[in-house]
Amino acid sequence: MQIARKLFRTCARLADVSKNDEGEEEEVPKATRMTLCLLAQRIGQLIDQIQDLERRLAMLAERHAPQLLTVVGIGPDTAVTLLITMGDNPERLHSEATFAALCGVSPIERSSGRRQYRRLNRGGWQANAALHRIVQTRLRFDPRTQNYYERRTKEGKTRREIVRCLKRYAARQVFHLVRPTQPCPPS
């Protein structure tokens, strides 16, 4: 990333170099310099906009569900995606199974005739992708998840089956962190 930033800065300065020697340079190299300069400046503007949006997402996630940001593998973008999936009224989700189905990580029984297995529900593309990012981050950095992966691999599970289980676990964890606890019914 540092090399790319240095390259963008160099390209952005190409316009200054071409201003000094207006008539001496051929048209094609001059046009190339100007194009590189304009593209580099636009990339710089986009990077600034991305950083501003990421900062705003982090503030929103911190304001609405700071408990999510303490969990391994959940960053501001993932937290916001899961909060959007849950919607304005998380009370409508009666159980973690309904949230898992909404995210597309509820298991569906499948059979090939000889073998019975489960596959994931096909719904909830964005929430499913967010849970996938959580699982991939945990597989890389979380020792508990790595131990779970090793144990399940020794039991003969495939990577796909293990990731399915981990996604379901992550959905369960998010559901319990975000959904408000049920008030006791009046007696």
Rank of each mutant, 00 (worst) to 15 (best):
Q116S: 03
H64R: 08
R5W: 06
H176P: 00
T35M: 09
A97L: 07
H176W: 05
V72W: 14
T81R: 08
K157D: 09
R151C: 09
R164Q: 12
V135R: 01
C37L: 01
L131Q: 04
P29C: 02
Q49C: 09
R172G: 13
S95A: 11
P180G: 07
V135P: 01
I108N: 11
N147H: 13
P66I: 00
A58C: 04
I43P: 01
G156A: 02
C11W: 14
L93I: 15
P143T: 06
E22S: 14
C165A: 10
R160K: 05
G75C: 07
E155V: 03
P66E: 03
S106I: 05
V105T: 14
H64N: 14
V135M: 00
H176C: 02
S111C: 03
P186F: 06
I134E: 00
R122W: 04
D142M: 10
V178T: 03
L93T: 10
K154D: 13
Q136G: 03
T32P: 00
E96M: 02
I3P: 02
E150V: 13
P107H: 07
R118N: 07
T181I: 08
I74Q: 04
A130E: 04
V163H: 01
R179E: 03
E25S: 10
E96I: 01
Q67F: 00
E26R: 14
K154N: 15
P29M: 04
E22H: 14
A101T: 12
A15T: 09
H132M: 09
C11S: 12
E161M: 09
L102V: 02
G23P: 12
V105S: 10
R138I: 04
G73Q: 05
P76I: 00
R160E: 07
G87F: 09
